[in-house]
Each structure stands twice: as structure tokens, then as C-alpha cells.
Simulated assay, not measured.
Amino acid sequence: MTSTIPTAAELTELVRSLVRQHRGERGPLLEILHAVQEQLGYVDPAVVPLLAAELNLSRADVHGVVTFYRDFRSAPPGRTTIRLCRAEACASLGAEQLVRAAEQALGIGVGETTADGATTLDEVFCLGNCALGPSAQINGRVRGRVDVRQLLAAARGGGR
């Protein structure tokens, strides 16, 4: 994942390269969007018209896919990304209270990033860790029986 904002020329080359790699596949849009996000950390809105042109799709089609799937972001994430599970099992074990406490402690809402770019708080509807709820995913690593102290420590320590 890159830490700098790409230029228009770099975005164009990235999109063209990914389209070439996936040209023979049926419906390659999702694979390409995942690859863009893997490389940039997010799907830059400038990618939408480029992909639409390269794949002979409408901008609305590409934009619809990007905005429909929660895993795609349209802005760079924080250095630490915290995803809190809000599925039924975790909710029954205090996930909603954990979400509210995290929002209050971080000063942001779900789906937002702190002003300093340190932490992104997001939600997910099942991490498959139901027996150890409430669960969170911190920088891709699933943790169980989390509390707000652990989340704040992860936010301060970069998610280690």
C-alpha cells in the first residue's frame, strides 16, 4: 500500500496495467477494484472514469460497485484501521456499547478517520469470531473479547 497520493498519470498507468492483467476474465471490475485498493489503500474517485472507459462501462456502473461494497474506501484510511463487529453474537456481548465508547473516545463516527489520520473506525457484520465477542479487526488482525482500552491502545500504538 502506497503512502503518497498518486498523480493523474500514475493513476492512469495503474488502471491500464490492472486492466491488462485482468483483460481475459469475465467481469473483471471487482478484481481490479480490489487490486487498486490493495496498492493505494483506497479507490481514488479519479479511478472511476478511467475504469469505466477501459472496461467499456458507465461511470455509474463503476461508482455503484465502489459504493455498494463496504470494503471499498474512497479516501485513504488511517494508519490504524479498527473494524468493530456489529453482528448479532457480538451485539449480544456488548458490541453496540463498544462502538459508542470508541466513537466517543476517538472523537469520530463509524466510517470516519481521525483528523490527524491516525485511526479509521469502521464496522463489519461478522468476523467469524462469534464465540469471543465482541470482536474487532485491527489492521487486518482479528481479536476477541475486546474493550475500549484495547482499541485505544491499538490506535495509539499503530495496531500492534
Rank of each mutant, 00 (worst) to 15 (best):
Met1Trp: 00
Ser3Phe: 09
Ile5Arg: 14
Ile5Asn: 07
Thr7Met: 09
Thr7Asp: 11
Ala9Ile: 09
Thr12Tyr: 00
Thr12Gly: 04
Leu14Ala: 08
Leu14Phe: 02
Val15Glu: 00
Arg16Leu: 08
Ser17Thr: 15
Ser17Met: 09
Leu18Met: 00
Leu18Arg: 03
Arg20Phe: 03
Arg20Tyr: 06
Arg20Asn: 07
Arg23Tyr: 01
Gly24Asn: 11
Leu30Ile: 13
Leu30Met: 09
Glu31Arg: 13
Glu31Asn: 08
Leu33Ser: 03
Leu33Gly: 04
His34Asp: 13
His34Gln: 11
Ala35Pro: 03
Val36Ala: 00
Val36Ile: 15
Gln37Lys: 12
Leu40Met: 09
Leu40Arg: 10
Leu40Trp: 05
Gly41Asp: 04
Val43Trp: 02
Asp44Ser: 11
Asp44Glu: 10
Pro45Tyr: 06
Pro45Phe: 08
Ala46Glu: 11
Val47Ile: 08
Val48Thr: 14
Leu51Asn: 00
Ala52Arg: 02
Ala52Asp: 01
Ala60Tyr: 07
Val62Arg: 02
Val62Lys: 01
His63Trp: 13
Val65Met: 09
Val66Phe: 10
Thr67Lys: 14
Phe68Val: 02
Phe72Arg: 02
Ser74Lys: 05
Pro77Met: 06
Gly78Ala: 10
Gly78Ile: 04
Arg79Asp: 14
Ile82Met: 05
Arg83Cys: 10
Arg83Tyr: 11
Leu84Tyr: 09
Leu84Ile: 15
Leu84Lys: 09
Leu84Arg: 10
Arg86Ala: 13
Glu88Gln: 13
Ala89Glu: 12
Cys90Lys: 11
Ala91Trp: 11
Ser92Leu: 15
Leu93Val: 06
Leu93Trp: 06
Ala95Gln: 13
Ala95His: 08
Glu96Thr: 10
Gln97Lys: 13
Gln97Met: 04
Leu98Lys: 03
Leu98Asp: 05
Leu98Phe: 04
Leu106Asn: 04
Gly107His: 09
Gly107Leu: 09
Gly109Asp: 10
Gly109His: 12
Val110Gln: 03
Gly111Met: 09
Gly111Asn: 07
Thr114Ile: 12
Thr114Phe: 11
Ala115Lys: 05
Ala118Tyr: 01
Thr119Asp: 07
Leu121Ser: 07
Asp122Ser: 14
Asp122His: 07
Glu123Ser: 15
Glu123Cys: 09
Phe125Gly: 01
Phe125Glu: 11
Phe125Arg: 10
Cys126Trp: 12
Leu127Glu: 08
Asn129Trp: 12
Asn129Ser: 05
Cys130Tyr: 06
Cys130Leu: 05
Leu132Ala: 11
Ser135Pro: 07
Gln137Ala: 14
Ile138Glu: 10
Asn139Cys: 08
Gly140Gln: 09
Arg141Trp: 00
Arg143Pro: 00
Arg145Gly: 06
Val146Glu: 15
Val146Lys: 01
Val148Ser: 00
Gln150Trp: 05
Leu151Asn: 03
Leu152Tyr: 01
Ala153Leu: 12
Ala154Pro: 04
Ala155Met: 06
Ala155Ser: 15
Ala155Phe: 04
Arg156Glu: 15
Arg156Ile: 08
Arg156Thr: 13
Gly157Asn: 15
Gly159Met: 06
